[in-house]
Structure formats: structure tokens, C-alpha cells
């Protein structure tokens, strides 16, 4: 099924592709979580327009397919006169798209912390931002860690979509190698194995992490 000689001959492009996928995943995760935290706080804010704006953002991105957002940024942004190129375009797309999903996870996390904790931090004189920063978010993020990381595993698989605008991520590198060597069956099987070998162990690890955090609580 898998032609390992072919894989070895093309290891440079495949490894570069894997690095690209991982870089895209990590950057989208980091920016997505930071943006997601801000969005979650905005959604829970008592300032009406702020929570409405954040809800609109989240609902919009959760209601359109990722492929569409990738296309939209790639094809339509240059139309408005901005030149970003495919790489920057997908890094931005993924960060703002994932932020919508991370936002909902973090919002649930914040809401899982009891009102009493908010009251106690306010009673000590902490401002809203301080109580979020030191009391609520640390607890919420710890509770949410397994779900946040699960979302990141999904994100890693989703990065393969950038192949459609010609980027050589791990999937793209496999596609190129496959068509250059007429080895569709072999390379697509290898790609599947590659994604599986990364995602499955991670999922197992997360399951154990979930159990440990449940015990701590």
C-alpha cells in the first residue's frame, strides 16, 4: 500500500509540509485562544453593544464552512486592494475562524466558575479585568484544557484544507508527490497514516488528561 522508497525520496517536501501544518496549527491555536478569551469576555459583558458584536462574530464564523472563509480571504481580500499572499492569508483566516470556536469553549468555562468566586474577588477590590486575569480565567482554562486541546486536534486536521489554494502543507505535499509520481493510492494512504499517527495518540492522551482533571475537581 505505502511505497516507503517514494516517501524517503520525497522526505524533504513531506517534512516541510508537516512543519507547515504544525506551524499553522500552533499559531492559530495561540492567537485563537487569546482572541477567543477576549470574545468570550465580550459575549458575557453587560455592555449590550459589545456582547452583541461578539455574538454576531461568533455566530457568523460558526455558520459558514471553513473552506468558504479560506476562499473568501484568499480571493476577495486582494480584490479590495490588499496584497497578502496565500501564506499570510491562511494564517489570518485560521486564527480568526478558530477564535469563534475557542470563544464558545472558553465562555462555557467562564460560566462554570461559580458566581461566588466573582463576588469574592470583587469584594476584595479587584477590578473586572483583574478578577478575570487572576481568578476566573485561570480556573476556567484549567477546567477547559482538555476540550481546548481536543479542538486543537480537530484544527490540525482542518489545516489540510489549505491544500485547495495550492499551499504545500502536509496534505499538499502528499498531493504534489502523488501526482508527480503517479502514486495516488500510495501517497494518500501515507497521508492518512500520517494524520492518524499524530491525532490518535493525542486524543488518547487528552482522554487521560480529562480524567485527571475531573479527579482534581
Amino acid at each position: 500500500m505505502i511505497d516507503f522508497k517514494l516517501v524517503a525520496d520525497n522526505s524533504d517536501i513531506l517534512l516541510a509540509g508537516l512543519r507547515y501544518s504544525l506551524a499553522l496549527t500552533c499559531s492559530s491555536m495561540l492567537i485563537g485562544i487569546v482572541l477567543g478569551c477576549l470574545l468570550a469576555m465580550a459575549r458575557l459583558s453587560s455592555v449590550k453593544w459589545l456582547s452583541l458584536a461578539a455574538s454576531a462574530y461568533v455566530n457568523l464564523f460558526r455558520s459558514v464552512p471553513l473552506v468558504l472563509v479560506i476562499f473568501w480571504f484568499y480571493f476577495l481580500i486582494p480584490f479590495f486592494g490588499f496584497k497578502v499572499g496565500p501564506d499570510k492569508s491562511v494564517f489570518i483566516t485560521f486564527a480568526i475562524f478558530e477564535a469563534a470556536y475557542y470563544c464558545e469553549i472558553i465562555r462555557a468555562g467562564i460560566q462554570s466558575i461559580s458566581r461566588g468566586q466573582v463576588g469574592a474577588s470583587q469584594a476584595l477590590g479587584l477590578t473586572y479585568v483583574q478578577s478575570m486575569r487572576y481568578i476566573i480565567l485561570p480556573q476556567a482554562l484549567r477546567n477547559m484544557l482538555p476540550v481546548l486541546l481536543t479542538q486543537t486536534v480537530v484544527l490540525f486536521q482542518d489545516t489540510s484544507l489549505v491544500t485547495i489554494i495550492g499551499i504545500k502543507d502536509f496534505m499538499g505535499a502528499n498531493v504534489v508527490t502523488a501526482s508527480n509520481n503517479g502514486a495516488l493510492k500510495e501517497m494518500y494512504t501515507f497521508a492518512a497514516l500520517g494524520y492518524f499517527c499524530i491525532c490518535f495518540p493525542l486524543s488518547m492522551l487528552l482522554k487521560r488528561l480529562h480524567k485527571r482533571i475531573a479527579v482534581l475537581r
Partner: peptide, 10 residues
């Protein structure tokens, strides 16, 4: 001081 103590558990 609150009924449920509300120490910060983390």
C-alpha cells in the same frame, strides 16, 4: 466573608 468561604481554589 461569605457563606461558602470562596477561597480561590487554584
Amino acid at each position: 466573608v461569605f457563606q461558602n468561604f470562596e477561597l480561590f481554589p487554584h
